[in-house]
Design a protein around this nucleic acid. Structure first.
Lengths: 112, 112
DNA sequence: TTGCTACATGTAGGAACGCTACGTATTGGA
DNA sequence: TCCAATACGTAGCGTTCCTACATGTAGCAA
């Protein structure tokens, strides 16, 4: 996976991962890895700053806790984050349509 | 269309536009705009530097000419560029699959 | 008890990319 | 005469993600 390919699309992925319930950062990273069959194994230096950015933007809300002697920062979607996620999905659909139209080679890949 | 969304995907679009035959920069920009129903109206400050980059990378080859009193730099795909385009299509398919898997909200948008 | 791995969070610095804003020049229509 | 469309270009900026490093706990194996 090219490094730059993700640019501008990471926020939506993080928000989507938090849609099913609150998660701490490391769990979000693992969930994304699992959901994509290991194809999206983000470095922590990518995940944590992105979560901080989302929190500053008011899209997620974090709170500290301690589980098993390890401190955790658990994040949950805010109402604004939920709206932003819906927007991200719309934008992705439009972007993917534009890319497929311009890139050619078949309108849509097989659902494999 | 978000500004950052395109990052890392522009090269493939430009190469795909040149696949059907040589084009000059401005025509490439127009072709992309047409192919996407005006949704991808790239500024010239994006197109020209990108073409220069592709030429430096050896993926396209440019030559000057004058048409109607206006100087043009016409670009055509190199063999390496053709291979790169095929790779870009593969990468896009994989990236789109990963995004759709992680973003949720339906596996693939309708083919509209 | 030493060492390693997994878990869990964080920052500093850098590289890449696309955009904004500008500049230059010609053609042709209002 | 003025402006839009055509056609090319660059400088500088902001954003983003990555690499590399730092910190600390828990648990397991040697």
């Amino acid at each position: 996976m090219r490094a730059e390919a993700l640019k501008g699309h990471l926020d939506g992925l993080l928000l989507a991962t938090l849609e099913d319930g609150p998660q701490h950062g490391y769990a979000v990273k693992e969930a994304l890895c699992d959901a994509t069959g290991g194809k999206l194994d983000l470095p922590t230096g990518t995940v944590y700053p992105a979560l901080h950015r989302l929190e500053r933007a008011g899209l997620i809300k974090g709170s500290w806790s301690v589980v098993g002697g390890r401190r955790r920062r658990t994040y949950e979607l805010t109402e604004q984050g939920r709206r932003s996620l819906a927007g991200a999905r719309d934008h992705w659909r439009e972007f993917a349509a534009v890319m497929s139209a311009a890139l050619g080679g078949g309108p849509w890949p097989a659902t494999n």
